[in-house]
Design a protein around this nucleic acid. Structure first.
Lengths: 245, 245
DNA sequence: CAGTGGTCTAGACCACAGG
DNA sequence: CTGTGGTCTAGACCACTGA
């Protein structure tokens, strides 16, 4: 097993988390102005650069809006559902942000040989073994996302049988492969549901669905997982916030 | 007319631009290691914080990958098409990144009264006037994106007739409204083409299309434009890079 | 081990918004 | 005018990687 190294959070992360909690708990209500950066510095006993790094991240997620010469304000438009881009593949989070209760069903976990196209995405040879995960995500007991993931089998540090199919992809990679995601390339398409997908999602076939292909890479630029997911966007809204510049 | 204030670029932006150019021009080829941060500091005669800010931005776009204890590398997987999220609404850029020649046709620019739902998105009263822009984007003379934008008419500083329908939304807002975008909320859906859309895009109706709704806000949290765009994703790929954490 | 990027500090000056 | 956020500097120490 991998050793779960305890890595204490950095000061910046702690400040970020405190501010995020205060916004969530309405200590800083929507639309209100946050304490000035220098006030936060003295409260947390940290330098201004640290506070600014934390605030920059919140602003990048659209949680706060900064106005030069004025102050930093809580964005009041995010009370409803929303998602930052990074959470695009944390489906549980996505479902709960939409106001539903999330659950996962593992449909298949097993090993097979990679096809030609699959192999090329994962930068392995066709026929090399891959671990396949097919999973279904539910929002309030209703199936909403169907996902297929492929991991090159040689990355796996444990037998296939030990994989818990209900963990997030990030957790699976960390626990079973000792790998961390550095970046991801994804492609968004609109497709009609095929029979496999429509049966799992309990939809009429030929329903238009969002289909997102993704490939995750580690810091060595090696592909570590590919994924293909099908959304029923009538139930689950795919909403993004983007800060500008 | 608005006054085009000349704002000299910050040092960070200049460093960022130089590094970006060098990567584009293969001074730093794909996969190669960049000079260390301290080397870049002495080359540009700036502090390390400045260099790091510039590199952090490049890393966030996935252009480079940083490895602690090792170095910063040019991501070799971005040679082909790709798009960062911010560019999602710079359609010309998107089309050219896909390797096509981009052109714009302005189909309609005019004023009308807002409907109920439109008014609620733009935080105005139903029946208040809005400026509507309908535009078609071409990739190599072939229509690929159809967009409808709505701007509250009271934001406009010039008569509707003066609007150049071939500018980007960002430019239109800056030139004619003196507004800058602070953030955007968007929603991605898979829809079947209706008759209006399918005729413009020259597609059979009932084709599945990507449909992206967006609303841009300024720093005062006021909605300044809404938009609805339809992609033919068989021609134009919607690809995103996301850095992780 | 030496060199890299990751984090953090304590200052400084600026542009800008508000009263 | 005062106070805000925006930018920048010159240091410091740490964690990590590769040879």
């Amino acid at each position: 097993m991998s050793l779960p190294i305890h890595r204490p959070k950095t000061i910046t992360q702690q400040v970020n988390a405190v501010l995020r909690d205060r916004i969530r708990d309405n200590v800083y209500p929507p639309g209100s102005r946050l304490p000035s950066e220098s006030l936060l510095c003295s409260e947390f006993r940290v330098s201004r650069a640290t506070v600014r790094t934390a605030l920059t991240r919140l602003a990048g997620e659209g949680l706060v809006i900064r106005k030069q010469g004025d102050g930093t304000y809580v964005n009041k438009r995010l009370e409803g559902v929303q998602t930052n881009l990074g959470g695009l593949w944390e489906f549980g989070e996505l479902i709960e942000k939409n106001g539903f209760q999330a659950s996962i069903q593992s449909i298949f976990v097993g090993q097979r040989d990679a096809g030609t196209e699959e192999a090329s995405v994962l930068a392995i040879q066709p026929g090399e073994p891959v671990v396949e995960l097919k999973r279904l995500f539910f929002a309030n007991q209703r199936p909403v996302i169907y996902v297929i993931n492929l991991i090159p089998a040689n990355l796996l540090a444990v037998p296939v049988e030990e994989i818990n199919g209900r963990l997030s992809i990030r957790e699976i990679l960390q626990l079973y492969c000792n790998e961390n995601i550095a970046y991801a390339l994804s492609e968004v398409c609109a497709n009609l549901a095929n029979s496999e997908v429509s049966s799992f999602l309990k939809l009429p076939s030929q329903t238009p669905l969002l289909n997102i292909h993704i490939c995750f890479y580690d810091a060595n630029n090696r592909p570590i997982v590919s994924g293909s997911s099908y959304y029923d966007d009538t139930i689950l809204k795919l909403r993004l916030v983007q800060a500008w510049q």
